[in-house]
Design a protein around this nucleic acid. Structure first.
Lengths: 116, 116
DNA sequence: CAACTTGTTATAGTTCAGCTATAACAATAG
DNA sequence: CTATTGTTATAGCTGAACTATAACAAGTTG
């Protein structure tokens, strides 16, 4: 499981982690039922705090992508289809935004606005 | 010009402002050549600091949506078409995400990931 | 059962982005 | 020239993010 995080970016570490793992789940690199690295191990590997890892895990659980229990660990849950189904549309939108030189931040803002 | 900002939200004020104004520009409530409220006035009206307003203005300038100069103020510039052209696709994507109960934050993360 | 693993919760300290407050400066309009 | 308005600088406050420890609860393993 390849995870890249960068403390110098403005995006919080726990969010970077969640984003990275979410992507792995959605594109199939992590299959349903598979267990993630225990928080303490991943924290050590990435040289960050356990809580930061757990916070990322908990975000994904709230999204229904993970199942977590003490002693058992964090396991990839169902609920993936709903996310994956958006992949195509997202890809197209981002392509068009790039084509039009609309920045990432601008696009994100437009989407936040559209959610209201 | 209607602007709503909420200090209790996690999104920074300057970003909320930029998002709100951007939306006004793109959907035509603010036309090209029109002048925004002077930063000091808008700051007073919203009961926030001038710098927060200016920071929002500057974001929009970097996106090419505003033209700014001391003494002249902030004026809506061209460059709108590129943003507006995305409106339809964005609307569709957000609708689909809502339909599938994919949260706003999850969708935003997917898009960030797609930008890499 | 006991031992171990792993998520949960609590507490506390540090750092930094966001926001505020003031003030002086520079460019433009009238 | 005078007033307006964005630009820049400096400084202080606050809360979110991150870290560090530690105790606890639920599950697994032998």
């Amino acid at each position: 499981m390849l995870i890249r995080i960068d403390p110098t970016l403005s995006m919080p570490l726990f969010e970077q982690l969640a984003t990275s793992i979410r992507a792995s789940i959605i594109d199939g690199r992590l299959g349903v039922g598979e267990r993630l690295l225990p928080a303490r191990q991943l924290a050590e590997a990435l040289d960050i705090n356990v809580h930061t890892v757990l916070r990322a895990y908990q975000i994904l659980r709230e999204e229904g992508l993970l199942d977590m229990r003490p002693g058992r660990g964090a396991i990839v849950a169902g609920r993936i289809g709903q996310h994956a189904a958006l992949a195509g549309a997202i890809h197209d939108l981002v392509d068009e935004a790039k084509l039009r030189n609309v920045s990432e931040s601008a696009l994100l803002s437009l989407i936040r606005e559209a959610y209201k």
